[in-house]
Design a protein around this nucleic acid. Structure first.
Length: 420
RNA sequence: GGAGGCGUCGCCUAGUCCGGUCUAUGGCGCCGCACUGCUAAUGCGGUUUGGGUUUAUCGCCCAUCGAGGGUUCAAAUCCCUCCGCCUCCGCCA
């Protein structure tokens, strides 16, 4: 949720952000009108409520006829107060509904446009040249007895899989390496709930426009999360944090669930796009002034991980229309996938500024004045199951084996994966 | 799943039976000031959060006693639903 004070004071900035996203900028005027309507109904309610309370005190002291007279006077007033309160509540709900439709203010410098309008910020490493027929990750995974899609489908349906033997060990090694790096940089490791309440899911911004991408357990009114970001965003909901000593950083380890409702036929082979995977996710709470710098730090830590697994990749600055509601800016690191001849997303880091925190009511004491203000939240990927795709393909050798990147070897306990 | 207990403005706590003087008590902590070689101690004042009003300060007003409804002129207090925590029993990874 964006700051309504900012919208009131600088509506043009919000309009510009909406246009950059390819969204309706007329909503800004609708919000201004809804806020005025809310305020006037609230003022009217408060005026009568004051009167009602004042008479109430007289009633408490009065006796006999005088009391009866006052009661007659205030009964009618009570009904009006009730109505005005209902009006004010309705106006507030309407205002909130409108406000929640507005995406976060896009950061300056973000490319305008949609999914294909990203900017490539940097390309790191060279795609490998093979003097043999390169196999794709599934062929490799099967010959290494690392991935079993068939039985995954038998048990869970399409887009489910088993990681077996070295495949399972590889995933654990990767995630553990991610966790170890996070700890080294001062993150608090967290194993998070993957089922969350509606308020948390909505607060993190995962319901509004992408509701069909998340699993919902109707019988229990819970959502399965697609990332530990959701639980970590909810972790400090309704709290006032002390960020005077610097950012609070958490590294969440969790299973992640995605319905992939809109992607029929896309990436159907292998484990690139699956309903369940595992991830280590960085999550930061910091002051809004520090958010842009923290975003760069998260990106740097993602790059550190990618360097450790020795993958060629590029960094893109996602265009405004592809940001999603909560993010003000998003950088993705995409690794080269040889058999596809293109880069595929392995990490994604978003600066959500105060958008999630405002919805989840996560605040700090205002360092520049009295009262409280919303904190900033950011997130970024350290490792996921999908990384296995790029590791297998980029490090495959002529004999069908796969070289294990040096940094990963201590976590895996192997320096090469051999066909069985 | 069953039985019982509990949830008050950072923490602890009074108030709930019997609705109005609750503008929510007291302690701890914290902040400010005073006093004092310094510290400590002591004294005085302040200290939920959100919103409205105000150029701003001071102030005033509204909401907020786990959440949401209801009864009532009036709800921390009575009723209903839900949530969470604790104890015990049962069942089970």
């Amino acid at each position: 949720m964006i700051d309504i004070k900012l919208l009131r004071e600088d509506p043009e900035r919000v309009r510009a952000s909406q246009r950059a996203r390819g969204e309706d900028d007329g909503i800004v005027d609708a919000i201004v009108a809804a806020e005025q309507a809310h305020r006037s109904s609230l003022t009217e309610f408060e005026r009568l409520r004051t009167e009602q309370k004042s008479i109430g005190k007289q009633v408490a002291r009065a006796q006999g006829e005088e009391k009866q007279a006052l009661l007659g006077q205030t009964k009618e007033l009570a009904a009006r107060v009730r109505q005005l309160q209902a009006d004010a509540d309705a106006a507030q709900t309407e205002l909130g509904d409108l406000l929640r439709q507005v995406g976060n203010l896009v950061e300056d410098g973000v490319p305008v446009g949609g999914e294909d309008d990203y900017t490539v910020l940097e390309t790191v490493g060279e795609p490998p040249q093979f003097d043999f027929d390169a196999k794709d990750h599934l062929a490799l995974g099967e010959s290494l007895a690392a991935i079993d899609m068939e039985r995954g489908a038998k048990v869970g349906g399409s887009r489910f899989y088993f990681l077996t033997g070295v495949g399972a060990r590889l995933e654990l090694a990767l995630l553990n390496m991610g966790m170890a790096q996070a700890v080294e940089h001062g993150f608090t490791p967290m194993i998070t709930p993957t089922l969350v309440k509606t308020e948390v899911m909505a607060g993190a911004g995962f319901i509004d426009k992408h509701a069909d991408e998340v699993y919902r357990l109707e019988a229990d009114d819970l959502f399965l999360t697609g990332t530990s970001e959701v639980a970590l965003a909810g972790y400090h909901a309704d709290e006032i944090l002390d960020l005077s000593a610097g950012p609070r950083r958490y590294a969440g380890w969790s299973a992640c669930y995605r319905r992939e409702a809109g992607s029929h036929g896309k990436d159907t082979r292998g484990i690139i796009r699956v309903h369940q995977f595992h991830k280590v996710e960085m999550f930061t709470y910091c002051r809004v002034e520090d958010a842009a710098a923290e975003h760069q730090r998260l990106l740097a830590w993602e790059k550190e991980m990618l360097a450790k697994v020795e993958l060629p990749y590029r960094v893109i600055d996602t265009a405004a229309g592809d940001l999603g509601g909560p993010a003000a800016r998003k950088f993705d690191c995409e690794a080269w996938v040889p058999t596809q001849g293109r880069y595929r997303e392995l990490t994604s880091t978003s600066n959500c500024t105060t958008y999630q925190a405002r919805r989840l009511n996560t605040r700090e004491r205002d360092p520049y004045g009295s009262g409280t203000r919303a904190v900033a939240t950011l997130n970024g990927t350290l490792a996921t199951t999908r990384w296995i795709v790029a590791i297998l393909e980029n490090h495959q050798q002529a004999d069908g084996s796969v070289r294990v990147p040096t940094a990963l070897q201590p976590f895996l306990g192997l320096d090469v994966l051999k066909p069985v």
